[in-house]
């Protein structure tokens, strides 16, 4: 997923989308995922990063990541790239 370049993200987890005018909050792990997406990491790589760092099954992360990305997409914060 590609995070839209004009989206403003602060360290506190506050996100502002200047395109739509909406603002959001995300939790620390969400913030890390957005950072990784910005750095161009693939979904597979993100799952590996998270499972290395956190105590969690990769199948759980896969489900949660799918849901999170769908929300980013629906909030027009990011776009899927094939």
């Amino acid at each position: 997923m590609h995070i839209n370049s004009n989206v403003a993200i602060s360290d506190s987890g506050f996100i502002f989308n200047p395109l739509t005018g909406d603002s959001f909050t995300t939790n620390p792990i969400g913030l890390q995922i957005i950072e990784m997406l910005k750095n161009g990491l693939s979904q597979q790589k993100i799952i590996t990063e998270i499972t290395t760092k956190y105590l969690v099954e990769s199948s759980t992360v896969e489900k949660d990541l799918r849901d999170y990305l769908s929300m980013l997409n629906s909030y027009q914060l990011g776009e899927y790239v094939n």
């Binding site: 403003a8 602060s10 506190s12 987890g13 506050f14 502002f16 603002s23 909050t25």
Partner: peptide, 11 residues
Amino acid sequence: DMQQFETISTK
């Protein structure tokens, strides 16, 4: 400013 809104929203 957006920052003020951010502060009240997050803190």
